[in-house]
C-alpha cells in the first residue's frame, strides 16, 4: 500500500503545467550553449552545412530544456520563475528543502529550429517511499516533460529523477 498522501497520489500520470516557452527559439542561446562546451559542430556555426544536412539552422538537441526555462524576473512576476514546477511542488508537499537531480533521459524527435515556439507539459510518473542517502533523507521522484513545437510535432521527451531531501538525517 502506498504511503503517499492523497494529494500526491492523484497527481501521478496526470498532465500538469501545460505551458508555452516565454520566447521563441533563438540563435544567441545556441551560440552561447555551444560556446559553453566548446562545441564546434558546423551544424550550429555554418549555415551552409545546416542547409545541406538539416534544411536550415537547428538548435543542439540537448538544449531542449533551455527553451522552457522561465525568466528569473519579468514584469508582474513576484516570485522568481522556476522550471519543472512539479518538482518544486513535491519539495513543498513533503517539506524537503533541498533537492538534486540524479538521472536524466532525453529522447529526441523533430529538430528544434530558430523561431520555433515550444510547448511543454509535465507528468509526475512516480514517487518513492522515504530514502536515506549521503545527502540526507527524502524521496526520489520521476517527472516526465513532453515538448511539442508550434505544429504540434513532438520534439522531445525528457525524464528527470529528482531527490528531494532534508540534510542532517543521514
Amino acid at each position: 500500500m502506498s504511503d503517499l498522501p492523497p494529494e500526491v497520489e492523484k497527481l501521478i500520470d496526470q498532465v500538469q503545467y501545460e505551458e508555452a516557452g516565454e520566447f521563441p527559439v533563438e540563435r544567441g542561446y545556441v551560440y552561447t550553449s555551444c560556446s559553453s562546451v566548446e562545441n564546434g559542430n558546423p551544424l550550429f556555426w555554418d549555415d551552409a552545412v545546416a542547409h545541406d544536412l538539416t534544411g536550415g539552422p537547428i538548435a543542439p538537441p540537448t538544449m531542449i530544456s533551455v527553451w522552457f526555462r522561465p525568466h528569473q524576473w519579468s514584469p508582474g512576476r513576484i516570485e522568481p520563475g522556476v522550471p519543472l514546477k512539479s518538482h518544486f511542488d513535491l519539495k513543498e508537499i513533503f517539506d524537503l528543502p533541498e533537492a538534486v537531480m540524479t538521472d536524466n533521459t532525453i529522447v529526441f524527435h523533430e529538430p528544434v529550429r530558430p523561431g520555433d515556439r515550444l510547448r511543454t507539459r509535465q507528468i509526475l510518473r512516480s514517487v518513492s517511499g522515504p530514502k536515506t542517502t549521503k545527502l540526507g533523507t527524502g524521496r526520489f521522484w520521476v517527472i516526465e516533460v513532453e515538448y511539442l513545437n508550434q505544429k504540434d510535432e513532438l520534439v522531445g521527451v525528457e525524464s528527470y529523477t529528482g531527490f528531494g531531501y532534508r540534510r542532517g538525517e543521514a
Binding site: N41, T102, D103
Partner: peptide, 21 residues
C-alpha cells in the same frame, strides 16, 4: 553531445541519451 558529435561529425544525429549522476 559535444563529445559524441566530435566523434561522429555533423551527420551523427542523437536519438536518445540517458545519464546518471
Amino acid at each position: 553531445e559535444r563529445f559524441l558529435t566530435d566523434w561522429s561529425g555533423p551527420t551523427g544525429r542523437l536519438g536518445r541519451m540517458k545519464f546518471r549522476m
